[in-house]
């Protein structure tokens, strides 16, 4: 709770500073600001709760430890993993290439949208027209004037239609995902209601946003007010959903990078040998952490003869159970 409030405070302060004491703050975006603040609060709150779970806390600590001890090579590794796992998301391609395409579309759509809207909302980014020419604009980051451009040029088009591009990318991804969910009985079986809700939310935000452009360009601005309200509503609802729904994985996923460093650190250290077959099967580091965490979450796998059931490798666990069962049935071997 405290972390959440703190984060909201920090966000507000940054907004104040970035917008020059609200000088460049766009009052029309106030609703969005409230939604964003709620999302920040919720996300940080939930993240903190998540981090307090014993296994998560242990892993988080180990991840940072691995980064600190790893020095520059670990940082380099982290950057590489950031590119492959967070940006390119190659691991999703291993699951399925169509899923990967869909996820990339949604991901980059959302990244573009966030890169445009959050700075606008907080007033960090605003545009001013240059001179009397209504077609020339200059972009300001806080108080700093940056490039000027022609709104009718390619760059200008991109700047003002960035959100439309984002929406189209997201919609493409959403339809691919939906297609999978409709065609694949396996996906339908493990469908969770939140899966659909997330897609519905992305769909609503993208479509209402695109309709704004459609209204401006081809409908002479008809329904514009209605559409802005609808769009604002979907976005605000979406922002409020963010910390509690499926999309929260956006914030969890980077933990995977810490895991990779942790596992690399484990691999470099001593290995746990199976107490049955003597083959190494995991790092001593990770097995030690696991054996610390198990009692914290209510399990006691200590064996009467000493040691722990987790000292047995997974394959030997299966074997020993089978042999015990065979003994209880009739004595086959």
């Amino acid at each position: 709770m405290r972390n959440g409030l703190l984060a909201v405070g920090v966000a507000l302060a940054l907004g104040w500073l970035g917008s020059g004491g609200l000088r460049w703050f766009d009052a029309a975006l106030a609703g969005y600001l409230l939604g964003t603040l709620f999302a920040i609060f919720g996300t940080v709150y939930r993240y903190s709760v998540w981090l307090r779970r014993p296994p998560t806390a242990r892993l988080s600590r180990r991840g940072w430890e691995a980064l600190r001890r790893g020095g520059w090579p670990a940082v380099k590794q982290l950057l590489g993993l950031g590119v492959s796992n967070l940006a390119a998301q190659t691991f999703i391609r291993e699951r399925s290439s169509s899923r990967w395409v869909a996820h990339q579309l949604v991901f980059w759509g959302c990244v573009i949208a966030a890169a445009i809207t959050f700075p606008l909302t907080f007033g960090w980014l605003h545009f001013e027209s240059v001179g009397d020419d209504a077609t020339r604009y200059r972009a300001f980051v806080g108080p700093l004037a940056t490039i000027a451009f022609d709104a009718r040029g390619a760059f200008g088009w991109l700047v003002f239609h960035g959100l439309d591009v984002a929406a189209i990318l997201v919609l493409g991804g959403v339809f691919l995902f939906l297609g999978r969910r409709v065609r694949d009985p396996g996906a339908i079986a493990v469908e969770r209601s939140t899966d659909f809700l997330a897609l519905a939310g992305l769909f609503a935000v993208s479509v209402t946003g695109l309709m704004l452009t459609v209204s401006t360009l081809w409908m002479g601005g008809r329904f514009y007010t209605f559409l802005t309200t609808t769009h604002a509503l979907t976005v605000i609802l979406g922002l409020m959903y963010l910390p509690f729904g499926k999309l929260f994985h956006v914030f969890q996923r980077p933990a995977n990078l810490g895991v990779q460093l942790y596992r690399a650190a484990g691999d470099a250290g001593p290995q746990q040998q199976c107490s049955e077959c003597a083959a190494p099967f995991a790092s001593v580091l990770q097995m030690g952490d696991l054996k610390d965490v198990l009692p914290q979450v209510g399990f006691d796998y200590a064996l009467p003869a000493g040691g722990s059931w987790q000292d047995v490798c997974p394959a030997c666990r299966r074997r020993v159970i089978t042999q015990a069962q065979a003994g209880r049935v009739g004595g086959f071997r």
Partner: peptide
């Protein structure tokens, strides 16, 4: 996040 805790536990 592919940490393998479940596999080992």
């Amino acid at each position: 996040i592919a940490c393998a805790s479940c596999v080992l536990a």
